[in-house]
Design a protein around this nucleic acid. Structure first.
Lengths: 188, 188
DNA sequence: ATACGCTGTTTAATTTAATTGTCAAGCGAG
DNA sequence: CTCGCTTGACAATTAAATTAAACAGCGTAT
């Protein structure tokens, strides 16, 4: 985890001095010096200020830092990363679970293992980017709305549509619903 | 930047208490309490310790934190089209079934519902076109070979690799194996 | 050479994060 | 209910990050 050298590399790449970056980020040059020498571990607030001033996102900063493209092809179930917005029931179990295969940032394919508790509802979403979305129901039932079309799908059934169309997923049954879905491209 | 709520959501999803996570990360429960309430901005060192103990990567943590944006659309199970080469066992049931969602020829996304009978084997394939391939195992077990790496995946596990790499699927178990997979682009 | 403007580093003072110990609330078993 | 155990939150202390200011190095122009 050499965030110091990475920060320095990015800063120099943009032709910024420590003082210049410090001013933009609302910090001091001394702080940047210490961080770049790994003599201190900045708070995420400080680091975010610095990256915003460069600018580069935290995700990209760490992505290229950690992701030294180790050829990883296989994933155990617990290596999936949960990307669902954090809705929790009173019981503490998640209403909606979207578990992503890999980090899918480097790849052009995003595959998800989805679980919808009874009553779970994504609400109408409006996605603006060009992409396609498809999936197959494994277990339970789900009501899917795309534009003005509504359909209830059971195990073995699937869907396929353009992501920019308004769409909505609702589990209207009494059983948990499980879906495997894919998305392309996962660009933002 | 609500890292507090995101950390809490992930922690609860894994069923961890503040103290439990604190022990694993080498921090204290009080610290986690403050972080989750956004009453303090943790150092990246602290945050990394926490995420390592969960585990989830910093990149994924910030990736899903920063981009929460988020005709025929529906297909019944029998509307899937079988695209596997027709191999039939003595019993008359197919050894290998690759059922494609939609015709997927017009789309840039190909999703398959795959079933491998015990002993089924795709043999080593060499695909030349640039594409990505990913999937999740629903039932049974499958041995997958990519380049020189071999892995046996069970229910919930998944794979993700570039299609031009030589790869092979073999059901080495006694049970039928079921997989949902995705491919992009589906050029033939 | 002296002075200037810039670079990045270092030290002591300050601010902030993390720890420690304590507290009340919730839950299940006896 | 009471006991024991766990959970998350809080106040005071300790540890660490951040600041402000001084430092040394390097070119360049005065």
């Amino acid at each position: 985890m050499d965030i110091g050298h990475r920060l320095r590399a990015i800063r120099k790449q943009r032709g910024l001095s420590q003082r210049e970056l410090a001013t933009r980020a609302g910090l001091t040059n001394g702080t940047i010096s210490l961080i770049e020498q790994n003599k201190t571990s900045p708070s995420v607030a400080s680091l975010k200020s610095l990256l915003d001033a460069i600018p580069i996102s935290l995700a990209d900063f760490f992505a290229t830092l950690e992701d030294q493209n180790t050829s990883k092809y296989f994933f155990t179930a617990d290596e999936f990363t949960e990307i669902a917005p954090s809705e929790i029931t009173e019981a503490g179990s998640p209403v909606l679970s979207l578990r992503q295969l890999g980090n899918a940032r480097s790849s052009s394919l995003q595959v998800l293992h989805e679980k919808y508790a009874p009553g779970a509802d994504t609400g109408p979403e409006l996605l603006s980017h060009e992409a396609e979305e498809a999936g197959i129901v494994i277990r339970g039932e789900i009501e899917i709305t795309v534009e003005d079309e509504v359909c209830v799908l059971g195990p073995g059934a699937g869907y396929l549509f353009n992501s920019r169309l308004p769409h909505r997923f609702r589990n209207i049954g009494t059983e948990e619903c499980e879906i495997i879905s894919a998305c392309t491209p996962p660009s933002f």
